[in-house]
């Protein structure tokens, strides 16, 4: 089956669908795109299923060749995108044909770009998902990151309505982020003073930030509880290890852990954090579970409204 060939994988390119769920009892984590809303737009612009398989390219540098007639869309981090050397707009569906060279330069804003193709890449799922988790050697092509010469199957599609997401709806990747935090887990084991310390101080993204979690540095938070049996860790959990520096646990987090957690960051904000590089300033602000629920429902309504305003080309 024809499809696409990886010419250069760039810094780190991974096959992802929306993630692996329902396998926690085996110890398998979720994986999936670190910036899920951007990945979802790449699929939506091509009329794909929301779980269609695409590539997450971190930092940039991915080059691939089309071996078939298809359409592509690149979303997420801002980077120079060219097709056969000619500049092409992101957040827009483009037609490609055999031998076309698609090149993603280095990111200029944000960290992770998503490249989707019409119909999605055809990847055999493992445990219900194609999401690559390198630590588990699961998903993608034999659990590996993409390498030069890899062939990715995709159906040949030569007729599709091209669409573009208007610029005003594209996410901004700012150098200052406010993460909405739902207090939970061991929140009561942190004194009110310690919780205020988290909300009143700024933190910086450290270089220890990857698909597993983002370690932040700033005013240390202390917890009265030190002994904790290992327990389930949800997406966005903010773990406070003995050094008091928060770690926001993301897509490839361990399923169980024994450090105290003060709560969890709203998924919409985790996606923005995942686009932040070292040095980004981060604030935390507490929200209630009701406010979190509202934010998620509003985001869904907003996405549906914007989807009806895509520009047809």
């Amino acid at each position: 089956m024809s499809g696409f060939t990886i010419i250069a994988p760039g810094v780190l390119s991974l096959i992802q669908d929306s993630g692996r769920f329902g396998q926690g009892a085996l110890g398998l984590t979720n994986g999936g795109p670190m910036d899920a809303p951007s990945a979802a737009w790449a699929n939506r612009l091509l009329g794909n299923h929301s779980n269609a398989t695409l590539i997450e390219c971190s930092v940039g540098g991915l080059q691939l060749r089309a071996d078939t007639h298809s359409y592509i869309a690149v979303t997420g981090a801002t980077l120079p995108l060219t097709i056969n050397g000619k500049a092409a707009e992101q957040w827009t569906a483009h037609k490609v044909q055999p031998d076309d060279l698609i090149e993603l330069g280095m990111v200029t804003k944000g960290l992770r770009a998503y490249i989707a193709v019409a119909g999605g890449f055809t990847i055999t799922p493992q445990f219900g998902s194609s999401a690559t988790v390198l630590r588990e050697a699961i998903g993608g092509l034999n659990g590996n990151k993409l390498r030069a010469g890899d062939k990715l199957s995709a159906n040949s599609i030569d007729k599709l309505q091209r669409q573009r997401l208007p610029a005003r709806y594209r996410p901004q990747f700012n150098q200052v982020l406010t993460l909405r935090l739902i207090e939970g887990y061991q929140a009561q084991s942190f004194t009110a003073t310690e919780r205020q310390r988290l909300y009143l101080n700024s933190y910086k993204v450290t270089p220890q930030a990857d698909r597993m979690g983002y370690k932040l540095s700033g005013s240390a938070i202390s917890c009265q509880q030190t002994q904790l049996l290992s327990e389930g860790i949800c997406y966005g959990s903010v773990q406070i290890p003995p050094d008091g520096q928060p770690i926001v646990l993301l897509n490839d987090r361990q399923t169980l852990g024994g450090y105290p957690k003060i709560g969890s960051v709203l998924s919409l904000d985790c996606a923005l954090l995942a686009q932040a590089g070292a040095g980004t300033t981060v604030y935390f602000t507490p929200i209630s579970p009701e406010q979190a629920h509202n934010a998620l429902c509003l985001a869904k309504v907003r996405t549906a409204a914007i989807s009806s305003q895509l520009v047809s080309l």
Partner: peptide, 22 residues
């Protein structure tokens, strides 16, 4: 339910927030 994560003395219950609530 999206997933259940049982451990020694706890269960983490993950649900679809767009179909139900806390």
């Amino acid at each position: 339910i999206i997933d259940l994560l049982p451990s020694y003395a706890s269960v983490l219950i993950l649900f679809n927030p767009l179909s139900t609530d806390h």
